[in-house]
Design a protein around this nucleic acid. Sequence first.
DNA 1: AATCACGCCAACCGCACACCA
DNA 2: CTGGTGTGCGGTTGGCGTGAT
Length: 307
Amino acid sequence: MRNPSSIAATSTTTPCCSKEGLKRGPWTPEEDELLCSYIRREGEGKWRTLPKRAGLLRCGKSCRLRWMNYLRPSVKRGQITSDEEDLILRLHRLLGNRWALIAGRIPGRTDNEIKNYWNTHLSKKLISQGIDPRTHRPLSTTSNQNPSSSSRPPKSNTNPNSSIGLKEISEAINNDQNYRPTRNPVMSFSEGDLGVVAVRLDQSDNNRGTYNEEENNSDVNNGNFVHYSGNCGGGTGDEDVFCSFLDPWIEEDVFANQLHQQQQQQFNGITHTDLDPLVLPPQFGCGTMWEANGLSSFASAFGEEET
DNA sequence: AATCACGCCAACCGCACACCA
DNA sequence: CTGGTGTGCGGTTGGCGTGAT
């Protein structure tokens, strides 16, 4: 049990977290009703002052969490289906422990629920199959990886084994002097936009997402990849933009596995300068994303040193 | 029936980031 | 530019339920 006094002594404790006279632990039906009726009346937000206005002896964080993870009408209760499980696995392979992003792709499920499900079911399942749940690679090949990865890395690049920070992508592209703006005048990167992903050139579904494609731009492998640069119509956050990119990644996951060997051979020998500068700037360590898809050679081609 | 061990999950914590004055 | 505030996120934990002994 945590010692509340130690919490109060923490200099970085935000006002919301001070526990003076505030209730903790499981929520009662009465509290739930108070919170629900208040949010129905006034809407979400202003979590810090919400408890007082709603007549709750809880901190704002607790109220927000309770609403987001349990009381929200859109929250789906019940067993995770096999389809959802499959989707979680694919998304985790792409994104790592970006639970909020993963949850955003699974309607009705919360990040907390997915995180719990991962920790209690899926990670064990993968381990039992001889797969490292962090890297989605066979355990034997990952045993020598840095064990310190269990400590929390910077949020912007949360999982060193899988995902990349979206903010870094747009920043890196914007800051890179070698970055050549797209030929498509509609497309330009701003804070809300996201850079470049590689998807299959022969992908047939053209209706997914709203990204603009730029064919022939970096057709480095004579057929299978083309780079898409991102401007998804504006107005959305970079995570939304990112989500529109995810569909082909998720659904072409099998493709990535099947052709991994082929890709390795095809990308061998390609240097960074062989690639179109529209790809992520070399100082940006984008390799982990490709590695997450088993495209390790692709990763090295983008300037990240493989170890 | 009592006790123990373990799994599950709601809830908490600290940190990071965005926003604004 | 800076500091304060609000919010969101990922990691962790405590308590409850359940099965085993």
